[in-house]
Design a protein around this nucleic acid. Structure first.
Lengths: 350, 350
DNA sequence: CTGAAAGCGCTAACAC
DNA sequence: GTGTTAGCGCTTTCAG
C-alpha cells in the first residue's frame, strides 16, 4: 500500500465527479461524450456534480486516451502583417464551424522559431497544422510530416507532398496594370523590390504582361531594397527630381506601404493623385485605406485563404483517401481615390 | 491475449525507441529529460534510434505523467490592434527565455470566444494564461481560476485575486497635454470618445490635469462615437467649419487613428501641422509614424507589458508563496513632426 | 443503460 | 547508471 503522499492532487478528476454523483466513472465519461446513452436522471446528477466541484476535463488525458485532438495550430510568419491576421481570422471561422480550436504561434520570420513551433505542435499531437512558410526551412516541416501531422501550407508556390493554398501574384500585378491602362495611363512604373522575391517579381511580370497587351504602354521598374514606407518615400523623391515628362502617369506599388510612402513624398512635391499619377498598390493593409487619399489596391485574399486552408486541413484529417492539391484564390481589385478620383466623399460633417 | 487489432498505432513511441536502441524505456526517458544521468554511449544510441525512427515526444502523455506543461496560452482581444501584437511579442520573448512556448488565441472582442478559449486552455492544463480582458465576462476567468490555472491579466484596472499588468492612461493624457503646453499651446482639445470607456476618459482627465496646472490653458472635448480614422475625419471637418480663432492650437487625440483622420481632414482644409495645430496622439500604431506628417504619440508600452506579464506569470507558477500584485508600466512620449515640426528629414534622395 | 477494467505514452520513484 | 513499475485522467470495449 502506498503510504507516501501523492505527488500532487492536481485538480478535480472524473473519479471525483463520479463519486459525488454516485455513479461509475464510465458513466461520467458517457454523460460528457455520448449524452444520449445516459438517463436524464443520471445526466442531471453528473452535471450537478460537475458544476459543484468545478470539474474541468483534462484534455491531455483525453487526447491520450482517445488518440485525437481538437486543436489546430497555425504557425504564422508575422503577426504585424495584416495579411496573416486575415488568414488567421478565416481559418478560425472554419475551425469554429467544425468544432475545433485554433491556436496561433508567431515565428516572427525566424526559421528557428518556425521549426520550434512546428515541433511543439507536433509534440502536442494537434489535429493539424497551418503554416505560412518562412524561406528555406524544411526541417521542422519534414519532422512534422514524419510524425504524421497533417499540415497545409499557405501563401506558397507548391510544396511536394502537402496541400497548399496560394494566391496569384502575377495576376495581381496584371489586374493592377490593366486598371491603370483602362484609365488611359500609358507610362507605367512598378515601384518596389527586390524582384528576386517571387511575390514581387511575379507582380512585376503581371504588370508587364498587361502592358504588352496594349500597344504604346511602357513599364519601368523603380527598385527598392525593401517594401516599407521609407522605401516608397525614397522612390518618390527620386521620381520628383525627374523632368515632369519622364514621370510616369500610372504606378503599381509592390505593397501598400510603398504606395503610402510614395504618395507622401510626391504630394509633398505638389504632384496630385490621380490627376498627375494614378497609384495602385498590391496587398491591402489598413494603411492603404486609411491614407490621406485612399489608395486603390489589389487585395491579397487573406481571409479566404485562411478559410480554404482550414477546410483543406479538415478534409485531410477526416478522409482516409486524400490527395494533396493546390488551391489558388484569385486577388480582387478595389478602386479607391488614388486612381479613380474623389467619389462621394463628404467634405463637411453631415 | 488480445487478438483484436490495437485501436490505432498512432506513431513511434518511446518503447519503440527503447527497443531499437536496445535499452529500457526508462533510460530513453532519462536520456531526454536528464541526460546527465545517462552514459555517453547509451545517450548516443538513444539519439540515433530517435533520429532513425523519427520519434516525436507526445506531450499529452508527458504532461499527464509529469503533471505540468510548458505552454502558456495568451488570449488576445484583437489581433488587428498592434498593441496586442506588441504584448504578444514581449510575452514571447520572456517565455522563450524561460524555455516555455507561447500560443495565442484571438477572442476577437467576443466575450463568448474569450470564454471558449479560456476554457480550452484550462482543459489543456497549460502552465498559465495571459489575458487581455474583454469587457464584462468573468465566467471563463472564474472557471480558469477554479480549475487552478494561473492567469495574469493585461491592460486592466485591477481584478480581484489576479495579477494585473496595466499602464497609466491618465498619465498618458497628462504627458501629451504637457508636451503641447510646453510648446506654448493654450487652446487645447481632446479628440475622441466615448469617454465612458475608461482608457479614453482617463486620458481626458490627464489632459485636464495638465491644463489645470497652467493658468490660461483651456481644454475642450471633441467627442466621437468610436476611435477610428473616420471619427477623426468627422471631427476634423467639424473643426474646419469653425471660425479660425476658435480652432484649438493643440490637440490630443484619443488614438492614433483619430489623429490620422483628423489630420487628413484638416490638411485638406489647408491647416498646417504643427504651425496651426500641434497634434499628438495617444497609443502608437504604425499608422502614426507612417502618416504623411509623422504624428507624435504617447506610446502604450505593449512590449513591456507583455514581458512583465509573462514574468509575473512565471513567478506565480514557480513560487508557492505568491502574492498578487499590479504592475504599472508608464507610457512614454515620442515627439514627431506633428508637434515639433520638420527635423532632419531628407527632402531628396541621399 | 450502467459499471469494471484495460490501456493511451510517458515520468518518476525505486530497486538492482 | 540502468531497468522495472506504478500511475497521470480519460475513453472505450465489454460484461452485467
Amino acid at each position: 500500500m502506498s503510504t507516501s503522499p501523492p505527488r500532487r492532487r492536481a485538480s478535480v478528476t472524473m473519479a471525483d465527479v463520479a463519486a459525488a454523483a454516485g455513479v461509475a466513472i464510465g458513466t461520467v465519461s458517457n454523460a460528457l461524450n455520448h449524452p444520449e446513452r445516459v438517463t436524464e436522471e443520471l445526466l442531471a446528477r453528473v452535471h450537478r456534480a460537475i458544476a459543484e466541484l468545478g470539474f474541468v476535463r483534462n484534455s491531455a488525458a483525453r487526447s491520450l486516451a482517445a488518440g485525437n485532438s481538437s486543436t489546430v495550430g497555425f504557425v504564422l510568419v508575422d503577426l504585424a502583417n495584416s495579411l496573416f491576421v486575415d488568414m488567421a481570422r478565416g481559418a478560425e471561422r472554419a475551425a469554429q464551424d467544425a468544432g475545433m480550436y485554433l491556436v496561433l504561434a508567431n515565428s516572427d520570420i525566424s526559421p528557428d522559431k518556425q521549426a520550434t513551433y512546428l515541433d511543439h505542435f507536433s509534440q502536442e499531437q494537434v489535429a493539424g497544422i497551418l503554416l505560412t512558410l518562412v524561406a528555406g526551412d524544411r526541417s521542422g516541416l519534414d519532422r512534422a510530416r514524419t510524425a504524421g501531422r497533417r499540415v497545409v501550407i499557405l501563401d506558397a508556390d507548391r510544396v511536394d507532398d502537402f496541400c497548399v493554398v496560394g494566391t496569384d501574384y502575377e495576376q495581381a500585378g496584371y489586374l493592377a496594370a490593366q486598371h491603370l491602362i483602362s484609365l488611359g495611363r500609358t507610362r507605367l512604373a512598378f515601384a518596389g523590390g527586390p524582384i528576386w522575391m517571387s511575390a514581387i517579381g511575379d507582380r512585376l511580370r503581371g504588370v508587364e504582361r498587361a502592358a504588352a497587351e496594349t500597344p504604346g504602354v511602357t513599364v519601368t521598374h523603380l527598385d527598392s531594397a525593401e517594401i516599407q514606407a521609407e522605401d516608397g518615400r525614397q522612390i518618390g523623391w527620386r521620381l520628383a527630381d525627374l523632368p515632369r515628362a519622364e514621370i510616369p502617369d500610372g504606378i503599381v506599388a509592390a505593397a501598400d506601404l510603398v504606395a503610402l510612402g510614395l504618395m507622401q513624398a510626391l504630394v509633398d512635391r505638389d504632384i496630385r493623385f490621380p490627376d498627375d499619377i494614378a497609384l495602385i498598390a498590391c496587398d491591402d493593409n489598413k494603411s492603404a485605406y486609411d491614407s490621406l487619399i485612399p489608395i486603390s489596391t489589389v487585395d491579397l485574399p487573406g481571409y479566404q485563404m485562411g478559410l480554404s486552408a482550414m477546410q483543406l486541413l479538415l478534409e485531410e484529417i477526416q478522409s482516409e483517401t486524400h490527395t494533396h492539391r493546390r488551391v489558388i484564390i484569385e486577388p480582387r481589385l478595389t478602386a479607391r481615390e488614388s486612381t479613380i478620383g474623389r467619389v462621394a466623399r463628404g467634405t463637411s460633417a453631415d
